[in-house]
Design a protein around this nucleic acid. Structure first.
Lengths: 233, 233
DNA sequence: TGTATTCAATTTGTCGACAAGGAATATGCA
DNA sequence: TGCATATTCCTTGTCGACAAATTGAATACA
C-alpha cells in the first residue's frame, strides 16, 4: 500500500476516483474483499493517500453497480451474494448468453472476430494450465468480447454485470473446476465462434443456450452439494 | 425554487442527496431538462440550498444511470438521446417486454395483480382523458409493475432503465399520440393481464411481443416521418 | 444482577475554501 | 487584418474540518 500512497503527488487531477474505483472493483470481484467486508472511508483515504471526497465518489459508483451496500449513517460493506434468488440470476445469465451470441452472429465485423479468437486462445491456455482462476477470468472476457461484437450496449452492460457477479460466485467453488468440463467448454466455444463467423444466428443462439445451461447446471450441482469453499484471506 | 432553499434547515441528515437525485431525475425524464442542458454544480447548490458535495453525489449517481454525461474538468450535461443506435434500444425493449411479462405469468402472486390492475386503470383513465403525457407515465408504471411481479431484479432494473429512456423519446413525439392506437393498447393490456392471471406463460409472452412490436413500429414511423416536436421550456 | 439511561467514541454527511484545468478573451506580432 | 500566444475567468476536483447519527460502553437505578 506504500506504493499507492507514494503516488500522491504525481497523480493527475481527476484520476484519483478512477484508480480507487478500479482497484476496489478488482478486489471485490477477486474476493480479496469477500462479501460482508467492511469498507472504511478514512482507512481507504489513508491507504490511497487522498482525502475522503474522491474515495466517497468511487464508493457511490460501486454502490450503483451493486458491488457494495451502504447503510445510511452507518457502515458500508461489500455486498452479499444472494444465494436465495439464484434462479433469477441464472435466468438472466442464460438469456444474455443467448441474445448476445445471436447478435454477435448478426452484427459482428471481421476485426471483432480477431479479438474473440484471442480471448478464446487465452481461455484455452488457462484450461491447459489447469488454472481455475484464470479460466473464470478469461471465460468472462471471451463472452464479453462476443457481446461487444453484438453491438447492443444495453445487453452488454447487463451481461457484464452478470459475468462479474458470476466471478464472485464461481470463485467460491473454483476447486471443483478440475474435471473434464473445461475441455468441453473449449470445444463449445469453438463451435459458437464458428457459428458467429458463419453468421448463422439460429445456430449461434442455440449453441449459446446449451453452453449456458451446462454451466448453470454445473454450478447448481455445486450449490446443492454445498461444497462451498471457506474463503478466508 | 424558493420553497426548495427554504427547506434548508429542516432537512434531515442524508436526505439531501436523495432529494436532489429524485428531482433532477424527474426533470430529465420529463424533458424539463432537455438533452444537452448544461448542469452547473454551483447553480444547483444555490437552488437546493446545500453545498456542492451532496449535489455532486447525486450527479455521480445520475451519471451511473446514463442520464447525464460528464466531461472531465469540463461541463456536465443531460445526456443526448442516441437516435443512431435506436435499433439496439428497440431490440432490448422488445425482449424485456417479452421476458418480464412471461415471468410475471409464472411467478406473480395475487397481491401483484391488484397493483397491476390499478396501474392499468390509471392508464385507461389517461387514455380516456386523452392526456398523452399521463399515458406515457402510466404505461411505464404498468409495465414496471408487471416486471416486478416477475421477480427478477436483473430484468426489472434493465427494463426500468429502458422505460425511462422511452419516456424521454416519447415525449418528443407525444402530440402524435392522439389517434386510435391508445385505445387498442388498453385492450392489449387487458389481454396480457388476463394471460398473466391465467398463468399462461406462452400466451403472455406472445401478447407482450406483439404489443411491444406495435409500439416500436409506431415510434419508428414517427422517427422516419421526422415530425419531432421542438421542445422548448 | 438485570435493565434503562447517559455518555463517549467512531463513522458518516456536509460544508466552505482553495487549486488545477479549460475556455474565452485579450494582447502581441507579422 | 490574421494568427499565435498570454492572461483571465469560470467550473470542476480535492482538501481539511466540523457536525450529526449511531454504536457500544459506562453508569445509575431497581
Amino acid at each position: 500500500m506504500d506504493n499507492e500512497t507514494s503516488l500522491r503527488n504525481e497523480r493527475k487531477r481527476g484520476s484519483g476516483v478512477k484508480v480507487v474505483y478500479d482497484i476496489l472493483r478488482d478486489e471485490i470481484l477477486h474476493l480479496e474483499l469477500p462479501p460482508g467486508s467492511p469498507i472504511d472511508e478514512v482507512q481507504l483515504s489513508e491507504r490511497f493517500g487522498m482525502s475522503r471526497t474522491p474515495i466517497r465518489e468511487a464508493l457511490v459508483r460501486l454502490a450503483g453497480e451493486g458491488l457494495i451496500d451502504t447503510l445510511p449513517n452507518r457502515s458500508t460493506m461489500v455486498s452479499q451474494i444472494d444465494f436465495l434468488n439464484m434462479h433469477s440470476y441464472f435466468d438472466a445469465l442464460v438469456l444474455m448468453y443467448r441474445v448476445t451470441t445471436q447478435l454477435a452472429a448478426r452484427y459482428h465485423r471481421p476485426e471483432d472476430l480477431e479479438i474473440v479468437r484471442a480471448r478464446q486462445a487465452e481461455f484455452a491456455a488457462a484450461v491447459e494450465a489447469q488454472d481455475a482462476l484464470a479460466m473464470i477470468s478469461t471465460n468472462a472476457e471471451l463472452h464479453l468480447a462476443i457481446a461487444e461484437a453484438g453491438r447492443n450496449p444495453y445487453f452488454t452492460a447487463l451481461f457484464s454485470r452478470l459475468l462479474n457477479e458470476g466471478r464472485r460466485i464461481l470463485r467460491l467453488y473454483y476447486q471443483s473446476y478440475n474435471d473434464r468440463l473445461p475441455r468441453r467448454f473449449v470445444e463449445e466455444h469453438d463451435e459458437m465462434i464458428a457459428a458467429i463467423a458463419a453468421r448463422d444466428t439460429d445456430l449461434a443462439e442455440s449453441l449459446a443456450r446449451l453452453h449456458a445451461e451446462q454451466i448453470v447446471a454445473q454450478v447448481q450441482k455445486l450449490l446443492v452439494r454445498g461444497d462451498r469453499l471457506d474463503v478466508k484471506l
